[in-house]
Nucleic acid binder design. Sequence first.
DNA 1: GCATGTCAAGTTGTG
DNA 2: CACAACTTGACATGC
Length: 325
Amino acid sequence: MLDQPGKPLLNSHFAGSIQETREDHVPRFGLCCLFAQEPIKFRSFTMKSLVQLGTTERLSKISDVCLHNSRSLLQALHFCRANGIGAFRVMSPFLPRYTHPDAGYTIDTLPDGEEISRNLALVRKFRDTHDIRLSFHPDQFIVLSSPRRDVVDNAVRELDYQAMLAELIGADVINVHGGGHYGDPTLALSRFADNFRRLPERVQSRLALENDDKIYSVVDLLPLCRQLGIPLIYDVHHHRCNNDGLSEEEATRRTIQTWEHVGREPYFHLSSPRNGWRHANPLPHADYIDLADFPPCWHGLTGTIDVEAKAKELAVIALQQALAG
DNA sequence: GCATGTCAAGTTGTG
DNA sequence: CACAACTTGACATGC
């Protein structure tokens, strides 16, 4: 394989003070944002409800929710540690509406700002001590290939917010898609490259491109990754929905190369189709991972595999047990 | 309490 | 040109 035994999983830029070293050739599995059964919840609010409040009540509400979320994130990491889950994806609205033009708050300006900051520092420390990889996955509105200036401006603001959080908690990945094709995918990806260069360093150093289910495949994105010096996140479910002729072995191999180039641990996504592969729409995610959907070439992989399944922590634990048994 | 509609944001494809 | 689909859960509202 291409892995170098004994190499740190994260390069010095991100490594923090990792005291444990994960075993090579065993993938770590990641939980995405939420819990199905465990009573760990993340709260949010809408702008509509916020604007009905006076200035004081508004700040108080924002602070309550952010404080709650900072405590929940710490609980989430403890849960991961206790259950052998090696990665956690943080939900985008962790600080809800942070980049909305009318929300106008920062952690510092909140009544509970100090405790929120303390909790985030504790998250970082726990992450470093127990080597739990943290990531972000901005949603569909974050598009760097758009021809619309306002769309790209919004995307840049949102990405910088997530990078700010990533710095605070020690997350090394911000995972985006290529965006739309706008009738000319080559031109669209060249816009992506141009806009990438506008991004702050803390975003650039964390950005990773994921193949999507309809437009940009692994083959489409690899040249852009090479050009920008950023890694590819290989979603095997999307690859099966939007096939580019590469075998899963080859896609995996080329993905690993992009991460070796930046000296960091490879990243993958795994899910099973809710209604089976013969259904007209195989995209919706199932509650659990069907072992038949686990790529054979991923056994013995050194890397992170996010489990995208609706049963959340139950699905990650079930998969880990199934593979161990 | 419980059910239903709503939520900042994009893009594509269909009717 | 308008609108549903994509995907998705918590929130807000109304009964």
